[in-house]
Amino acid sequence: MTAPATADFRTRLQDWLPKMVLAPSFAVTLLFVYGFIAFTVLLSFTGSKMLPKYDFVGLDNYRRLFALEHWHIAIGNIAVFASLYIVICSAIGLMLAIFLDQKIRGEGFLRPIFLYPMALSFIVTGTAWKWFLDPGIGLEKVMRLWGWESFTFTWIKDNDLAIYCIVIAAVWQTSGFVMAMFLAGLRGIDNEILKAAQIDGASNWQLYRRIVIPMLRPAFLSAFVILSHLAIKSYDLVVALTGGGPGRSTEMPATFMYSYTFTRNQMGIGASSAVIMLMTIAAIMVPYLYAELKEKK
């Protein structure tokens, strides 16, 4: 009289469908992301030149990589660029967010203006700033035409200063976005806390320094993570703005990897530089993502 206690076909199919739908994406991720990472790591231990070879040379590529002056320039540049970029973007973003939060007339008009660079390609940004900072036609010439005869601005042609041009363009592109993140954080703060602090006698300066900014910690963390990962990945902007020059003065790990792998036929070294880049980003992203996902559970 009792029917067997096994699931019918449709029920079993329904149990498997979700996994079947997700499986291709997961497989693609495993192959194209983690498989490729493994392959690149593997290559970094081989003596591959123009094409992949599978002769293992141990840590040779890493040793050679860190002996290259070219790589040292790239590392030094990324350190300078990333720290300035993160600090300046955060500072400008925080300042603009706090200012915009003061019941500013025309906020709805200003906010999109601060943010629109984020919608542009780094190539477009690079092109615009490249010519604006060019002494021959850009800022220097404009200032002189306006009567400031002694004005000079040749950073982009200067080995030591060109890197700061990249910082300017990158800050221009992203600081509005950081502003939006901080603004969202500010809007999330309960107004009653602000009122309580004012009744406690805090001046505006104290209010922000002691109460508001500490409460923005999650926004700072997000900004830091996003900016640092953008900084390490920055390739397009350097290519468009300076092409790594003058000379090699604005070379970054991203451009280094590309040129060693595809134009200098040093695939082993290129691969090892990519591995170093991945490890740096992973050191920042993995703990962050882990914490985010764990919290949500």
Partner: peptide, 17 residues
């Protein structure tokens, strides 16, 4: 164990059935 409705064991049967 098992659950039955009107004598029909429904373990593993889809909710809609």
């Amino acid at each position: 164990g098992e659950i039955a409705i009107k004598g029909r064991v429904i373990n593993g049967v889809h909710p809609s059935k």
